[in-house]
Design a protein around this nucleic acid. Structure first.
Lengths: 141, 141
DNA sequence: CGATACTTGACTAATTCGATCATCAATATA
DNA sequence: TATATTGATGATCGAATTAGTCAAGTATCG
């Protein structure tokens, strides 16, 4: 029931890419990893999966980096989690024909749906917006 | 994000114990494992955890077995899941001081709360009742 | 060319999970 | 009391997942 670190990292990376989308140059891997303390070769794997999902593009060479290719408001945390391979909600036990088992699985599924609904209701754009709010709020503290 | 098999098994066992609570003799381990195809030595471990939680008692020797010691309406799936050590909801990545990370963690926590709320809203008594409706032949009452 | 930066694939260490095994302790019943 | 029955306990195991790491390579810019 824990959110894997790679899902957290993937979401952080997408937030950074969304926040810097209007810059002319792509955002280098190092910029993201240094800011958030993510192991660089680990984030490479994750960005590769986001690229496979079609949400980022990359360019090599000096001045290379990553760009977001999808509107941030259309990117949900659920989509990102699935893109980096978060296991589906459900139950690992074999299904049995008994009523007790079936009733139970219905509840596990309901709980999983509730979980996924929350993640599906939050977009990268939402997150970037609330970060900008809380960042500017910090100036007054 | 999968419900561990041991949580499923624990809930099944508590349902069986609740459904047979009015019998004079305790319910033997073998009765439960045979009916649901649970490996017997595995369920022993699980029942031990439920005993530690104070929800079942046991007696050894022939005619021995397990008894439920708590009203089934007060036993929720969340309580059972926690008793057998289901990992807490949350995020495995280290917390960072950045706004982005904090905003994200808030969402992971919200999703985890939604998940737990569903499990907390269903009691063993609820499950036994809906099983009796859908398949009354299942229990030896 | 040479520095920079992404690409690819294999590899590893730690943890969890589901399950098994052997051995021991207690109890009812004959 | 002897014995079969039933739970208690601790060690161990194989598979899968997770979070990284490493070592080569390839493209691009100056």
């Amino acid at each position: 029931m824990q959110v894997p670190a790679r899902v957290h990292y993937a979401a952080l990376a997408m937030m950074e890419l969304a926040a810097t989308a209007n810059r002319p140059q792509p955002l280098a891997l190092r910029e993201i990893t240094q800011r958030h303390g993510i192991p660089q070769p680990f984030l490479v794997q994750i960005l590769q999966q986001l690229k496979t999902a079609g949400w980022v593009s990359s360019s090599r060479g000096s001045q290379g980096g990553y760009r977001i290719t999808t509107a941030a408001k259309n990117l949900t945390l659920l989509g990102i989690a699935e893109a980096v391979g978060m296991q589906e909600t459900g139950c690992s036990a074999d299904s049995s024909p008994h009523a007790a088992s079936r009733q139970l699985k219905r509840v596990w599924d309901q709980a999983g749906d509730a979980y996924r609904d929350v993640l599906a209701s939050v977009s990268i754009a939402d997150l970037v917006r609330s970060c900008e709010k809380s960042d500017s709020a910090m100036f007054y503290i």
